Simulated assay, not measured.
Amino acid sequence: MTRYVIVGAGAIGGAVGGLLANEGTEVLLVARGDHGRTMIDKGLTLRCPDATVTVPAPTVTGPEDVRLRSDDVLVLATKTHQADAAINQWADVGVYDNDELIGRAADRLPILTALNGVASEEIALRYFDRVFGVCVWMPAVMIEPGEVIVRGAPLRGVFHISRYGTAVDGEADAELLKSVQTDWTAAGCNVVLPDDVMPWKYRKLISNLGNAFQALLGDNPGAEELSEAARTEAREVLAAARIQVTSDDEERAARQDAAQVKPVPGTPQHLGGSSWQSLFRGSGNIETDYLNGEIALVGRRVGHPAPINSRITALARHAAHTGQRPGDVTVDQLRTALGL
Rank of each mutant, 00 (worst) to 15 (best):
G117S: 08
L112R: 11
E122R: 14
I102W: 07
V55G: 10
L155C: 08
G170K: 06
I123V: 13
A114E: 10
L74H: 05
T78K: 00
R151C: 13
D99V: 13
S120K: 04
G33D: 07
T80L: 00
E144P: 03
R37I: 07
A105M: 06
V66Q: 10
H81K: 12
V60N: 12
P110N: 14
I143C: 04
L155K: 10
V73S: 01
P63T: 01
E122Q: 15
G133C: 05
A31P: 02
T59E: 03
R104H: 05
V136F: 14
T78D: 07
A83Y: 00
R108L: 11
F132P: 04
G117F: 08
V53P: 08
E121V: 05
R104M: 09
G146P: 09
G36W: 14
V131Y: 11
D169Y: 01
R69C: 07
V118R: 03
G33F: 05
G170E: 12
H160C: 15
L74N: 00
V75I: 14
Y96L: 11
K79A: 07
T166C: 12
A153Q: 11
L112C: 12
L112T: 11
D107M: 07
P145F: 10
R32I: 03
V168D: 06
V118M: 09
G62P: 03
L109V: 02
R126D: 13
A83R: 00
E144A: 07
A114V: 09
L68Q: 08
A114T: 01
R163T: 07
A86P: 00
Q89F: 00
C135V: 02
A91D: 04
N116D: 05
L101Q: 05
D97C: 08
D97T: 03
E23R: 09
F132N: 14
L28P: 12
V150H: 09
V73D: 06
N88M: 03
V75P: 06
R47I: 07
E64A: 04
S70R: 02
V150N: 12
G157M: 13
A124M: 03
R37P: 08
R126Y: 02
D41A: 14
G43W: 00
A77F: 00
G62Y: 00
S70K: 01
T25M: 09
G33N: 10
M39Q: 11
M39E: 09
R156W: 12
L46Q: 14
L44C: 11
Y127C: 04
V66Y: 01
D129S: 12
E64K: 09
R104S: 13
D107W: 06
D71T: 05
A167S: 11
V30H: 02
A31T: 03
E23S: 06
E144K: 10
Y164R: 05
S120Y: 07
A83F: 06
E122Y: 10
G103K: 01
L109D: 07
D65E: 15
I149A: 08
P154E: 07
V55I: 15
L29G: 00
H160I: 11
E26W: 02
L115M: 15
G62C: 03
V131E: 13
G165K: 13
A153P: 04
L109M: 01
P110S: 15
T38A: 15
I149F: 08
V150A: 15
K42I: 02
R130M: 09
L44Q: 08
R130A: 11
D65W: 01
T78E: 02
V30K: 04
G94H: 06
T52N: 05
E100G: 00
